[in-house]
Design a protein around this nucleic acid. Structure first.
Lengths: 251, 251
DNA sequence: CGATAAGTTGAAACTCGTCAAGGTCCGTGG
DNA sequence: CCACGGACCTTGACGAGTTTCAACTTATCG
């Protein structure tokens, strides 16, 4: 029970009441007063796949919570080579605080719904409410951990291992089955083969070949090019090139 | 002038007076009181190359400021394949707040000197002093930007481009020449060929070949295997596979 | 239905890894 | 002082894995 609770304590904006960002996202760090203030300036959007939210080197004037769908973060080399440097799932916070210009492109990978706020409103609340900054630090640290983990995949895994690692990561973020920790999963791929190849540092042909190989080995089933079923997650993990938290063995 | 300023206002600990971490590192976010408190519990160390600071999956009970030298962050696969997922230079802060166990190995790449604090002391000050948390958030966001940038190098660049990109990055962090923004640079490589290959996702043989190629093309000079001179930084940049902040051209 | 985008499959080319030999540097000890 | 040993680095030849190029298939949508 905090000191700041007052007559607004139950005055949570209607929009926010059932919003995932309030439970698991950054809005969970806000007290009702701030939530009301933010909600006034917020706006909701729906975006189709391929639509760009933020362009590289462009000024950013809003932040968003990702309410549903998958967003990809990309970078380009000048000759057109592209790398997806991260995926974001609901209820992640989108936007790079304390920088005027973005250093990445942010683009809807699937249909996406957002709750956006003017940059100034968010930054004012960050100053007033240390809880929000703490939450942002925690999310940023988690994102950093994920990025470092993915660097191992990009730098040291083979093509088959990369594709298996990708499927495992997606399964963990998107599995909509009843039984979460059970040994099976089932989901729609949020990315095209070309996107997957840009995420893994491969070509779409190689991705395609490795997917058919996994299917031939009965590790996965694919329907309609997009819908994937994994009967045994542990079986899939064996194809990921064991991530050893353990030390390199003594000789 | 803050309320908490008191007779200790100019009582900055002697050790901290000339310390780089106080100017450009996280300690710059602390007021003298906290600085005194931390300095009491701090200890300084010198480490030789190859010494491990923090092991993967081990409990961490201290944080450190890196005062000099270079530290490498690594991850392993269970079969021994290794990836360096980041380098840290002075005056970076080392340690992952809010987690009991590390997910990476942290190891001295060169001779290194540290200023270490007990985990509890740092976390107490984080709670009391929002400035420190803000500083940590900023450093973490910068580290995330660097990690994402490096993912492009790992995923999409060729071996020659990777090696050139590595040299450029090192030059920017280690050049000790008088003229900072000038077109030339000069430094000692903080990593062995094997380390460089683990950083770039290559083999040491390939790294070696690309270095001799760059030398043959008069992009760099190498003395004593470790000391590198770059006469024209812009020339070196041309070998890095142009990082396009620009959009992919219209057809 | 035909058109377009996405995905699959095959064959050839090429980059980079693997394996092996030799070279350089440096500290130790005869 | 020089020989020896070991760690690190360089260079070459060969081969595996991935990309490239091209043809074909499948799904989607007017």
């Amino acid at each position: 029970m905090t000191v700041r609770q007052d007559i607004h304590s139950s005055g949570i904006p209607v929009l926010c009441l059932s919003c995932a960002a309030r439970h698991r996202g950054v809005c969970g760090a806000l007290d009702p007063n701030h939530l009301v203030g933010l909600a006034k300036t917020s706006s909701r959007h729906k975006l189709e796949p391929g639509v760009e939210l933020i362009a590289d080197a462009e000024a950013v004037d809003s932040y968003s919570n990702l309410l549903s769908g998958v967003v990809k973060l990309t970078k380009c080399l000048s000759d057109g080579r592209q790398q997806i440097v991260g995926l974001r799932f609901a209820p992640d916070f989108l936007g790079r605080p304390f920088k005027v210009k973005s250093t990445i492109n942010v683009e809807a990978a699937t249909s996406v719904s957002l709750c956006s706020f003017p940059k100034a409103a968010v930054e004012r609340i960050i100053k007033e409410s240390p809880g929000l900054e703490h939450r942002l630090l925690k999310q940023t640290l988690d994102e950093l951990d994920e990025a470092l983990e993915w660097m191992v995949t990009l730098g040291r895994k083979t093509a088959p291992e990369k594709v298996a690692s990708f499927l495992l990561m997606i399964a963990r973020n998107m599995d909509s089955s009843i039984d979460p920790a059970a040994g099976s999963a089932c989901f729609d791929l949020p990315l095209t083969r070309a996107d997957i190849s840009d995420f893994l540092g491969l070509t779409n042909e190689t991705v395609s070949r490795q997917l058919t190989r996994l299917r031939a080995d009965d590790v996965i089933r694919i329907e309609n090019k997009r819908h994937v079923t994994v009967d045994s997650m542990s079986r899939l993990e064996q194809h990921c090139g064991g991530r050893g938290a353990r030390q390199p063995a003594f000789e």
